[in-house]
Every structure is written in structure tokens, then in C-alpha cells.
């Protein structure tokens, strides 16, 4: 999975936000705020990663069990796919 071209992350007032530009902006309006763990996942998805890799990073970085990490990652990825932000 990889973040589609045109989606950009920037910091505004200490929080990371994502916007769509160019062709990506045709189907996506608005601004998404990312929390700390979402920012971490975003960086991995910018260069391309599969769900297992994302789960590994979360369990290595935070004190969470694998089931919680899998659920959280799955929810995040589903949201990104639903909004057309990542492709397979």
C-alpha cells in the first residue's frame, strides 16, 4: 500500500495535517488531522508498506498488544482506502 500522489502532510500549530492537491483534490476536499501514531504510519505509507509492517512498527513503538495494534492499523487503513488516499 502506498499514499497516492497529491496527498501531502504538513505541520500546522504543532499538529500534522493532510491535504489533497492537484488531481487528488478533485475527489477529496478538506483537511485531515493526524495524531502521533497516525503520523508514524503515514511516513511508512509514503514509501509503501503492508499492513503487517505497520502493525510491527506500532507494537515496537508503543506499549500495546498485537491484537489492539492490528485493530487500530486495520481501522486506519480502511479509512485511508475509503477516502481514496492509499492504493493497493
Amino acid at each position: 500500500m502506498k499514499i497516492r500522489k497529491g496527498f501531502l502532510m504538513r505541520e500546522v500549530a504543532g499538529k500534522n495535517v493532510v491535504i489533497a492537491t492537484g488531481d487528488a483534490a478533485r475527489n477529496f476536499n478538506g483537511i485531515i488531522k493526524l495524531n502521533e501514531s497516525a503520523t508514524l504510519l503515514w511516513h511508512l505509507l509514503e514509501r509503501g508498506a503492508d499492513e503487517a509492517e505497520l502493525v510491527d512498527t506500532i507494537t515496537e513503538t508503543y506499549d500495546v498488544d498485537i491484537t489492539t495494534a492490528q485493530n487500530d492499523v486495520s481501522m486506519f487503513v480502511t479509512k485511508l482506502k475509503g477516502a481514496g488516499i492509499v492504493d493497493e
Binding site: G6, L8, R10, V12, A13, V17, I19, T21, G22, A25, R26, N29, G30, I31
Partner: peptide, 15 residues
């Protein structure tokens, strides 16, 4: 939010 990347990035910087 402008659609062009340069103006959109600038918009976030101004915010």
C-alpha cells in the same frame, strides 16, 4: 484550499 500544490502548501504555512 487551493488545488495547486504550491498554493495549498503556502495556505497551510499562512494558517
Amino acid at each position: 484550499m487551493p488545488k495547486s500544490a504550491d498554493a495549498a502548501i503556502k495556505t497551510l504555512e499562512l494558517c
